[in-house]
Nucleic acid binder design. Structure first.
Lengths: 243, 243
DNA sequence: AAGTGGTCTAGACCACGGC
DNA sequence: CCGTGGTCTAGACCACTTG
């Protein structure tokens, strides 16, 4: 379960417009209603509409032309990831046009390595909870996701953790922590045998590694995520408005 | 008031605040003045201040806490890239803490390959201008940047092109085109001998490839950029606010 | 000239956190 | 409680594109 919060007007407008783009009410390449028209139709101020449109434009969903109008980007469907969502692996899978699912592999408790202790600001040897999961695109395994979280942060019994939840909800439910921001490192690595066991294909080929450090509001590192990413199957492509 | 007319008020506020973070006027981890105080100090409305702060927060420069205040992120300097700027290679180099410079290698005219013609919406065999450049971090070559642009778009003599300019200015000056948005594909590849010749190190190792397609406002593809990126030296790391 | 998006303002009220 | 950021409004004026 998730904590349900009434969404802001901006987010609701954003959702409505994205849905209209997705279901074809607003066709790729076509002009959508003006800010004033949307403002009147949806019953919110023009400023609210503009905030939502700015977000859509930043992610390349729409193109805005001063003096002309706002158009749906013809290449919407080619982008698989969006800014502010690089860590959201399920969205990455669905952005590639597949149905995402999560397989829970294992959860273990072990001391932190020196490198992990440094990143997570721990004493050497402090214990971590290591969560290993496998993301599927339809039936194909595509991302091996490891998350390491300091054991000392855990608030609920280890056994109760549901390994299929969104990482956001795992932090919320079992650690009572809210993630404020993340730092993601994108690297190119060779596929190791241990990973190849899960993702298949030939070992030794180049693949992407997304390393994410999760922080809470006081800059305390909450977790280290290492996501091995088969980019021969899944693509990491981003649309960006030119500022 | 130091706000002048040339740039937008929001951009100027953004610049002023970034500078204060960078030169240490606002120290990492410290609280910066409230929105009202900034609004009064800089002589703009609170809405203008908020727009600038939202941009800084999205890029992880600052952390905002409702009911408390706005704080400079302690990890500002660890991020090397920023949203909406993934194509800006010089900024990527300086984000890693190095001094960027560009070496102009070559400019050639040749027919498009089938794949290029498809991406750039050309007839097979149409001619391209191929610009090859090498980006340095201090004295170290780090990014091999190839750009392919349809010859038919060129407005000035080929010989006049200054290969050291920002890609934005090249389009502006020689093609009279403005880039509206880009699509960037991030891939993991093995370093080929041809590239290794420029970037050094051992051939066959995994490296990053950023492939960027540039579009103008009518969705016409302007250019294809392929940037080979030595991520053993340069890091691609992004800070993102958790939405 | 008309209509669009781009910018900015002044002010209202809410939700949250620290004192 | 007060001050902070979060949200939203109504309206003004500008810059640009199109007919």
């Amino acid at each position: 379960m998730r904590i349900i919060q009434s969404k802001s007007a901006v987010d609701q407008v954003d959702e409505i417009l994205q849905e209209r783009i997705w279901d074809g009410s607003y066709l790729p390449g076509s002009r959508i209603p003006s800010e004033s028209e949307l403002s009147e139709e949806l019953g919110v101020s023009r400023a609210t509409i503009r905030t939502a449109l700015a977000k859509l434009a930043a992610n390349g969903f729409i193109l805005r032309k001063q003096g002309d109008g706002t158009y749906v980007n013809e290449h919407v469907r080619e982008a698989s990831a969006h800014f502010g969502n690089l860590w959201d692996l399920a969205e990455l899978v669905s952005g590639n046009g597949y149905n995402p699912s999560i397989q829970f592999l294992s959860i273990k408790r072990r001391p932190a390595t020196e490198k992990e202790a440094l990143i997570l600001a721990l004493e050497a040897g402090e214990e971590l909870i290591c969560l290993r999961r496998l993301f599927y695109a339809d039936q194909q395994p595509v991302i091996l996701a490891d998350n390491a979280i300091p054991f000392s942060l855990l608030c609920e019994p280890l056994e109760t953790i549901d390994g299929k939840l969104h990482i956001r909800d795992i932090f919320d439910l079992y650690f009572h922590q809210k993630i404020t921001y993340v730092m993601t490192d994108i690297r190119s690595v060779v596929m190791e045998a241990e990973v190849q066991e899960f993702l298949g294909g030939e070992a030794g080929r180049p693949i992407l590694q997304l390393q994410t450090i999760f922080y809470e509001k006081n800059n305390l590192p909450l977790a280290l995520g290492v996501n091995i990413f088969d980019d021969s199957f899944l693509h990491l492509s981003l649309a960006q408005a030119w500022s």
